[in-house]
Design a protein around this nucleic acid. Structure first.
Length: 582
RNA sequence: GGUCCCGUGGUGCAGUUUGGAGUGCACGCCGGCCUGUCAAGCCGGAGGUCGCGGGUUCAAAUCCCGUCGGGACCGCCA
């Protein structure tokens, strides 16, 4: 049907008779004698010169046969890759007529209401930016598969219809027709199946797996997403990190052409202390400064006995109004802080600085001087302090740091980071005394910390696990761990978590059974492909790298999903609907 | 579950603070003119439930309440 693609024509093609197909991106009419039509396909635009009468409208689907010729002196267009040539003596065949598109298909569409774009996604996808995103995503998938294949990983497909487990995210659920009243769940991840693959001698498993979680949507979260999921036998943390780095590095090369280099590491504890986050955005500083010692003997009740930390917003005093400070204080409270202390740094007569703050009068001169010293305060800065228990102080200041200092997604480069030594337990339930797992209950404790499992709440919370996250520019790309493969250790963890034998059998019985038949030591990882592609492309929203995404409320403006189903379908499934909640 | 922002011809906006006739801009669309344009140009035209409902008022795009839709975030996402 065609001999060339629109975007590939160059002066080399001059004199050739070519046939191209595409959409009429723009037309410039000069009466019935002459018109210029920019024909667009996925490779770009080429100018076609149409002589004589015609009726060509925007987005008509055309097949144009003509002769490639150089553009006349002075009419070349350096903005187009094909701008030195044009197609002349055109024969035009209208393959399909088209209504005017609902929004412009050039860069101006970046400002169009996203609902309108999604409702007409098939038109939106024609745009150069969306074509670039789809094709970059395909290149990343391809690079990931090649890298995993090259490292001896085997791609195994795991089921989509699986048994529901109450842990973790809310399941999407599918009713069974054969057994009315029972349900499949769609996988939140292939976690248990990939471990079964290890027992099954697969040795190195991977899959670009669709995962589904019925949780609230965000800029970096959709119901459905894709993970590069991997698991390795006879391997530990270092093996996994090396293999994942190779895969991610291949994706980075495929998109940017640049080598990844060594990915730095940071312990979870250090990440929380310095950045107030387990997924620190290390593209910028504004690190948390610990001030607890400065207030060890303070008379200011709000600071006494608390973890006090601060961040310094350099040079921001003039641009930060009192209104803004009040607003930030409100936010800090919504984030869980008791309050937010701010201090404006001003030049003092003696050449030092003074800290102007509503609470300055409650602090001693020594304390104020120590704050200024530790935070390296300069005149014109604003300091923000939070005092609370360690985790809350870090969390609130971590959010405040992002609010005040986070650069746009397109700036600061690609700053990958391994966060290692996550705690095994996130918290200890005050009512039951049971620890709450931070990852999943098959995560191997750090060898050096096993003795602490016998201790009290404080000991339990200090147990490190062999779990690790990969972070890129403040987004959690993925996480993994070394798994427990020994039944006795697993039993120990279940006991601690209060998971009885019956419950364990009901929830993961098949995995525990499998382990009785000889489980190799194994470890794995999974990271989100949508997030990786978005960040590689400088998109701040993963919907831009998904062909048909859903809105924040989980609907699809194109298909109107989710929709009601008819009574016969419900009947067949043995389901009856409750009246709508009021 | 919560906080905040947005909703005005097909698209993007101004108008909302301080109520006074659907007033305006750009693009697109339709018609006309135009033989070297390139986000072509010139002339003319059509196109509106100011998201929806209620309230206040002589009068509401504008103020108030509710609601729907979209977005960002907190919680949630082992």
């Amino acid at each position: 049907m065609r001999s060339h693609l629109c975007g590939e024509l160059r002066p080399d093609h001059v004199g050739e008779r070519v046939t191209v197909c595409g959409w009429a991106a723009r037309r410039r009419e000069h009466g019935e004698h002459l018109a210029f039509v920019d024909l667009r396909d996925h490779t770009g635009l080429v100018q076609c010169v149409v002589d004589g009468a015609h009726d060509l409208r925007g987005e008509y689907v055309l097949r144009i046969t003509g002769t490639v010729r150089p553009r006349p002196e002075g009419t070349t267009n350096p903005a187009l890759a094909t701008g030195e040539v044009e197609i002349g003596e055109c024969e035009v065949e209208v393959l399909a007529e088209a209504e005017p598109p609902p929004f412009p298909l050039d860069d101006r569409a970046d400002d169009v209401d996203e609902t309108v774009r999604l409702r007409h996604r098939y038109v939106d996808l024609r745009r150069a930016a969306m074509q670039r995103n789809l094709r970059t995503r395909a290149a990343v998938n391809s690079a990931l598969r090649r890298a995993m294949d090259d490292q001896g990983f085997v791609e195994v497909e795991t089921p989509l219809l699986i048994a529901s487990t109450p842990e973790g995210a809310r399941d999407f659920v599918v009713p069974s027709r054969h057994r009315p009243g029972t349900f499949y769940a769609l996988p939140q991840s292939p976690q248990l199946f990939k471990q079964l693959c290890m027992v099954g001698g697969v040795d190195r498993y991977y899959q670009i797996a669709r995962c589904l979680r019925d949780e609230d949507l965000r800029a970096d979260r959709q119901f459905e997403f894709s993970q590069l999921d991997a698991e390795m036998s006879f391997a530990g943390q270092e093996d996994v990190l090396a293999c994942i780095e190779a895969a991610v590095g291949a994706a980075v090369v495929a998109v940017t052409g640049e080598q990844l280099g060594e990915v730095p590491r940071m312990t979870w504890r250090e990440a929380m202390d310095r950045y107030g986050s387990d997924k620190p955005d290390v593209r910028f500083g504004m690190e948390l400064v610990d001030l607890s010692e400065a207030f060890a003997a303070t008379g200011f009740n709000a600071f006494a006995g608390a973890t006090v930390k601060g961040i310094r917003h350099a040079g921001a005093s003039e641009a930060t109004s009192r209104n803004r400070l009040d607003d930030l204080t409100d936010r800090a409270k919504r984030w869980g802080a008791k309050g937010l202390v701010w201090m404006r740094v001003e030049a003092a007569d003696d050449g030092g600085v003074t800290l102007a703050s509503p609470i300055a009068k409650f602090l001693s001169a020594e304390e104020l001087a120590e704050v200024a010293r530790r935070m390296e305060a300069e005149p014109g800065d604003v300091l923000y302090l939070v005092a609370d228990e360690w985790a809350r102080t870090a969390h609130v200041l971590g959010l405040l740091r992002l609010e005040l200092g986070r650069p746009p997604v397109t700036e600061g480069g690609l700053r990958f980071l391994w966060v290692v030594d996550f705690p095994l337990f996130e918290s200890v339930d005050e009512a039951t005394g049971r620890p709450v797992p931070a990852h999943h209950p098959f995560t191997m404790p750090h060898a050096e910390d096993v003795a602490l499992l016998d201790g009290g709440a404080e000991d339990l919370l200090s147990v490190r696990s062999q779990a690790y996250d990969l972070v890129l520019n403040g987004w959690e790309l993925g996480s993994g761990s070394v798994r427990i493969h020994r039944p006795d250790v697993q039993q120990r963890i279940f006991d601690l978590l209060g998971i009885g034998e019956e419950e364990a059998q009901a929830k993961f019985g098949f995995l525990l059974d499998a382990f009785r038949y000889g489980a190799p030591p194994h470890a794995g990882f999974a990271f989100g492909v949508d997030r990786l592609v978005a960040l590689l492309l400088g998109e701040e929203n993963i919907r831009e790298v998904i062909a048909f995404p859903k809105t924040q409320s989980g609907t699809d403006p194109l298909t109107s999903a989710p929709t009601a189903i008819d009574a016969t379908q419900l009947e067949e499934l043995g389901l009856r609907l409750l009246p709508p909640r009021t």
